[in-house]
C-alpha cells in the first residue's frame, strides 16, 4: 500500500460496475488491515487527520451510517453527519442547492444515502475536488454493502471462482442485490437469484446465472445464501398476498438449509425480519455470518475512505 503502483485510481465509489477485479481486491486487502486497527485497544490511526468527511443520509439508516461514522473517526477524519429530517432538504431544498452548500464547506469526501436512484452520481457531477461515496441510492446500488459482503464471504471461502451464491428475496427493489450480483459475477461466482416473480426484474435472466422462484432450487448445493430484507410496504403494492405466505414460500428455515452445501454460510444485510425471510434459528445458527457482516462494515468503510482519499498520503505526513 502507498507505493506508486498501488495508488487507487478512482475518485468516487458510485457503482460496483465501475470497479475491476483488482479494485475489489485492493478494497479487501486494505479492509483486512483496517479490521486489525479496529481490534486494537486504541482504535485510531492518524491517517485522515485534517480531512473532512460529510455523511449525508437522506433516508433512515442505522448500520451503514454508524459504520461510516466510526470508520471516519477511527481514521481521525473530521466527520459531520446530516440526516434527512434535520436537513434543509426536508425544507424543500433541491439536490442542486444541497450540493452547492456542501461544496461550499470544502469537504474531502461525502457519503450519500438517498431514496432516489442516481442521486450520488448526480452530486458527483456537481462537486469538483471531492470524493462521493454511494451509501445506497434508491433501487440502484449499495456498493459499500457489496464490498463488505464480499469481504465476509472471502473470510469463509477459499475462492470466488465457481462459488455458488444464491440471493433470495425482493431482487427487483434491492440495491444490495444489484450491487452484489455485479460484484460477485466479476469475481467469477455463479449467482442465482430467487424471489416471487413479481419481485424479479424483467431482465432477470440476463442479470444472473440462474433465476428461480423456488427457494429449494436456490438453496440446493449453494455455498452462500444471501437473504434480503422484505420490505413490508411492498405488501400494499400487491406483489405478494401477505407475510405469512411470503415466509412459507421464500423464508429460509433450517430444514431448507439442509439442501445447501455442508459448509454453507447464511448472510443478511439487515435489519432482519425474524420469522419472515429468515427463521430465528437460522439467523442465530452456526451458518450465520450476519454479525461478521456488520463488523466488516466498519473495516470496509475505513478502506473506502482510505483509498478514495489517496491512501492517506496527505500533505504534512
Amino acid at each position: 500500500m502507498g507505493s506508486e503502483a498501488n495508488v487507487f485510481s478512482h475518485r468516487h465509489l458510485l457503482s460496483m460496475d465501475d470497479l475491476s477485479r483488482d479494485d475489489i481486491g485492493q478494497f479487501l486487502t486494505t479492509a483486512k488491515m483496517m479490521k486489525e486497527v479496529s481490534e486494537r485497544e486504541v482504535k485510531k490511526i492518524p491517517t485522515l487527520r485534517g480531512r473532512t468527511v460529510i455523511n449525508c443520509f437522506l433516508e433512515p439508516s442505522t448500520r451503514t451510517r454508524m459504520s461510516f461514522e466510526i470508520a471516519g473517526k477511527r481514521l481521525s477524519a473530521d466527520v459531520i453527519n446530516i440526516s434527512a429530517s434535520g436537513s434543509s432538504m426536508s425544507k424543500g431544498e433541491s439536490l442542486k442547492d444541497m450540493a452547492g452548500t456542501l461544496r461550499a464547506m470544502n469537504p474531502d469526501l461525502i457519503t450519500i444515502r438517498s431514496p432516489h436512484s442516481g442521486a450520488p452520481f448526480q452530486v458527483s457531477e456537481m462537486i469538483e475536488r471531492c470524493s462521493v461515496v454511494n451509501a445506497g441510492d434508491g433501487r440502484h446500488e449499495h456498493p459499500s454493502q457489496s464490498l463488505l459482503d464480499i469481504m465476509t464471504i472471502s473470510e469463509h471461502k477459499e475462492a470466488f471462482m465457481g462459488l455458488k451464491v444464491s440471493i433470495v428475496g425482493d431482487i427487483l427493489n434491492s440495491r444490495v442485490a444489484r450491487s452484489n450480483i455485479i460484484g460477485l459475477k466479476k469475481l467469477g461466482a455463479v449467482v442465482t437469484i430467487c424471489g416471487p416473480k413479481t419481485l424479479l426484474p424483467v431482465n432477470a435472466e440476463e442479470m444472473a446465472d440462474g433465476v428461480t422462484t423456488s427457494i429449494k432450487t436456490a438453496v440446493k448445493n449453494a455455498d452462500v445464501v444471501m437473504m434480503l430484507r422484505i420490505q413490508k410496504e411492498r405488501i400494499g403494492q400487491a406483489t405478494f398476498p401477505n407475510l405469512r405466505e411470503y415466509s412459507r414460500l421464500f423464508g429460509l428455515t433450517s430444514e431448507r438449509l439442509k439442501l445447501a452445501a455442508k459448509d454453507v454460510v447464511v448472510m443478511h444485510p439487515g435489519p432482519v425480519n425474524r420469522g419472515v425471510e429468515i427463521a430465528p434459528d437460522v439467523a442465530d445458527g452456526p451458518w450465520s455470518v450476519i454479525l461478521d457482516q456488520v463488523k466488516n462494515g466498519v473495516a470496509v468503510r475505513m478502506a473506502i475512505l482510505y483509498l478514495l482519499l489517496g491512501g492517506g498520503l496527505a500533505q504534512g505526513e
Partner: peptide
Amino acid sequence: NEGAQAVRMGLVGQP
C-alpha cells in the same frame, strides 16, 4: 421505459 436499462439504473420502468 421498463427494460434492462431501467433495471441497471435502478429506476422504475413503464411497460
